[in-house]
Design a protein around this nucleic acid. Structure first.
Lengths: 352, 352
DNA sequence: GATGTCCATCGTAGCGCTATGATGGGTATA
DNA sequence: TATACCCATCATAGCGCTACGATGGACATC
């Protein structure tokens, strides 16, 4: 091919070493053109059964693995979905990501993971790299993002799903539930149990806007209640851990000696509170009722078993996947169906 | 350019619609060649400060986002590290993946995540897609893989790190610790506390080979002990959850009424066992001593606080990242330094 | 002044694939 | 028999970037 058609004759360039099996090799062996192989790979039904068989045989004898990078470049959109969560260590998001990944894998989509550690600047940087992959979709957590992030996403034209929160204006699509409503449910439940001195125990609420919204929903609902109801919001600046829960309960008792009901922004915190009660000889639920959030693994087994609110992390993952796949298949949901409320359920157990 | 040099004249092809800002746009605006822009992006120091500034300005005015897919294709290796874990819901792996992701992000590497659900076939499929991304490295969990998986990996020439286990022959590199030794440490600790009727409680050990190895290390060590020592291994076929722990303790007591010490393959199981003891009025550690594995969040706070073995999931993540980055920078570790033992630490608390 | 070296910069051939439109033979329709 | 229409298949132009080697000016050395 080196025709020397330009101004000067040039030494044929050393081609990069390369021994990888390509689609062309498959095509040669199967005695068809590369386009047919490509077509077969993307839409087997469009190729005659005879040719298909021949191609399949060639693929397996050569051990051909398609190069998705090349495919992504040619198709101007890669088979990748970029998912950005605050933290993968958080069981909530781990569950969602896990489900999402499984669902997307069925359609040959890969998940690229990033975590923002609850930082908007970090998130912005992650979105930037995410877009550099020309992903099939971008999935973010929550509805709070920097203006620059929103601009980047909007300009990109890539489908965007914001998950784990609804109630604001999403960039594109949203799947989740209302956090204030979760807080309200918790408060209503405690009030219905006759508790009048209640508190919300949360962690990292300066950064975790969703937890903060649960707290304010809780406080709002308490305000609506009969008089003689006191309500406190207590925050731990560190991460939501069992240990934080123990600390928070201690602080709550100090601040509100008459405390008779708490809601926690996370089951881990609730578990810590239960432990602290046990340590201090406080009867649960007799003296203090405890409501958690998350319905984590241990909530049925702990002592007493934990009344909690289940946000259905896996359902969120499923719905996000559904939205993304619909978009890829050309069925772009419109209007209200671009926002999906997965709701929440209060599960009453022994702790209230 | 459409020279019509081939057999027939052809209508100039409709070019694909395209409005994305490319490197060429940046180059034009900065009045340099595209190569210089590319060079600047990859190695800013190789470009004169004047040109560099010009390019930087152009990038920001155009809002240029490099296309990593194109870069990956041209460079024959994408800035992606494919990580395959059994389950991201498992706190151990969540921790490692989280750390790994953070470390790699510092060097502009992305993590593509897959989970195998402890299935070798699933893992093989994941490895296949992973390789389709021409990743900078592949990270797997454990040393047990299907022969086909090993063959695929070896043939690919991509750096491979197997994590969370050492003690066998890795495909390429390994970072982790010896699971039999963990089991042995647990047994030794229980024996040192005078326990003679001990059991190992594990979950899903038919699939989770590492848990099974901890169990057999435990049993081996028990065998070496003074006579009159009995040792049982009890398996729960489902996932390692708190609930499973409660069930397992019940079964253990049934099988070994004289039970006075247990080791669990996971802190969640240990926590479930603690709860069950509390429910049945069994004193821990007086009647039964409990050793966990994982040093999870709650282990310090639960009642009694849990003696456990810390495997340092974040250290594993860090070391995996180090190995990968060294490889990318051309420093290929050789020989023994391709296997890194992150060890384990037994942390004694109140439960023994 | 000639030659060599170094450095910043440049030109361009691919990387492996997909999308577009063309081709040509077979079948249905006029 | 002529025409239209399909369908399976094919040829090829990019997708946006990187890496290779070339270029030419600045400076040092002979």
């Amino acid at each position: 091919m080196d025709t020397g058609s330009s101004l000067q004759n040039r030494v044929p360039r050393k081609r990069r070493k390369m021994q990888r099996v390509t689609m062309i090799d498959v095509a040669k062996l199967a005695q068809v053109s590369p386009s047919t192989v490509s077509l077969y790979l993307r839409k087997p039904s469009a190729v005659s059964p005879a040719a298909g068989q021949e191609i399949a045989r060639a693929i397996s004898t050569l051990g051909y693995v398609p190069n998705l990078v090349a495919g992504g470049l040619a198709a101007a959109s890669s088979k990748v979905v970029s998912v950005i969560v605050p933290s993968i260590r958080n069981a909530f998001f781990a569950e969602t990501v896990s489900t999402l990944q499984s669902e997307l894998a069925l359609e040959g989509l890969q998940v690229i993971l990033g975590h923002s550690e609850y930082g908007e600047d970090q998130e912005e940087a992650l979105v930037r790299t995410a877009l550099a992959w020309a992903p099939a979709a971008v999935v973010l957590t929550g509805l709070s993002h920097s203006p620059e992030t929103r601009k980047l996403l909007q300009a990109s034209g890539v489908p965007v799903v914001e998950m784990w929160e609804i109630g604001g204006k999403p960039v594109d699509m949203a799947v989740g539930f209302s956090h204030p409503q979760v807080g309200a449910s918790a408060a209503r439940h405690l009030l219905s149990k006759g508790r009048r001195s209640i508190a919300f125990l949360g962690a990292r609420m300066q950064e975790d806007h969703r937890a903060a919204k649960r707290a304010s929903g809780f406080a709002e609902e308490a305000k609506l209640a009969a008089e003689r109801t006191t309500c406190e919001i207590i925050n731990h600046p560190g991460a939501a851990t069992v240990e934080a829960g123990s600390l928070l309960l201690g602080r709550a008792l100090q601040q509100v000696p008459s405390l008779d009901g708490i809601a926690c922004s996370n089951d881990l915190i609730a578990l810590g509170a239960l432990f602290e009660c046990q340590r201090q000889g406080i009867a649960v639920p007799d003296r203090i009722a405890v409501v958690g959030f998350g319905d984590l693994d241990f909530s049925t087994s702990c002592i007493p078993s934990l009344t909690t609110i289940r946000p259905s992390g896996d359902l969120i993952g499923k719905e996000v996947a559904r939205l993304i796949l619909a978009g890829i298949h050309g069925e772009h949901p419109a209007g209200a169906s671009r926002i999906i409320d997965t709701g929440h359920v209060l599960i009453e157990r022994r702790s209230t």
